[in-house]
Amino acid sequence: MTTNVAASFQYHAPSSVEEACRLLAKYKGGAKLLAGGHSLLPLVKLRLATPEALIDLSRIKGLSYVKAGRKGLAIGAMTTYYDIESSDVVKKAAPVLADAAAQVADTQVRNAGTLGGSLAHSDPAGDLPAVVLALGAELEVHTARGSRTISVDNFFRDLLTTALRPNEVLTEIRIPPLPARTGTAYVKLANKASHYAVVGVAAVVTLDKAGVCAAARVAVTGAGPHAVRAKRTERILIGKKLSALVIRRAAERAGAEIGDGFNSDIHASAEYRAAMTIVFAERALTEAVGRV
C-alpha cells in the first residue's frame, strides 16, 4: 500500500507541564509539542516537518477544562473543539467561540483537535485564531522556570509563527467577559473538502444604550499569512450607528491590514480572497449587530 510514513522521531509523554518544558529545552528547538495532532501529524507524515522528538501533552492532567468566573472564561489549552462546542458554559459566556468550534472541520477532527493546538500552530486557515483575536483573549504560557501572559494581539506573528518561544508551553486561554449589549459572530467561506477557512471573519460588537457602536473587535483569518485584527474596520464602526451602509463601508476596509499579503493557492486567488474578505466581514458584522 502506498502511504505516507513519517521519519523516525523520539516520543515523550510527560505527566507535567514542567517536565514538558524541560524536554523542550533538552531538544533545543528540535522537538515539537503534540496536542491533538491534527495539524502537526499531517505535516510530519508528509515530512514537511521532521522533528527529532514529539512531546505529547495529552498525558498531563489538568490541561483540559472550561471554567467561568468574574474575570471571564478560562479554557485549558488541551480542551478539544468538541468539548468547547458542547460546553454550556462557553455557549453562555462566549457563544461565538462555541459556534466557531462547531464549524471546524468534522466530527472526528473536533474530537481530537484542541484550542491551544490551533492557536500555537497558527495555521493561516485556522478558525479559532480569528475568534480569540476578536474576543481579546489573554494566553498563559509556561517555561520550566515560570509563566507569562501574552495578549492575543501580540501572539500571531507570521505563517505558522507565534510569540511562543521554543521552550514555552501554552497552557490556558482566558477570555474576558462580554459587556452588555454585545453581539458576536464568526462566519467563513469554507473549503468544500477540508472545511478550512478560505476566508473567515469574527466580529464582537458592543452598542451603547443609544445604539451607537461603543466597541468593536473584528478579526480575519484565511486571507493572509496569519489571523489579524481589522483595525481600520473597527475604527470606522466605533462612534457610529451601525446602519447597513456603515457596515458596508467598514467591511470594505477589512483587508486593509493584509495589504498585498493575501494568500494565493489552488483554493482561491489573492484577488478572490480580498473580495471575499469584504463579503464575509459584512456578513459577520451584520450577524453580530443583529444579535446585540
Partner: peptide, 8 residues
C-alpha cells in the same frame, strides 16, 4: 470517533 491515520 477519530481518524486513525492521524493518531499515533
Amino acid at each position: 470517533a477519530v481518524k486513525s491515520c492521524t493518531v499515533l
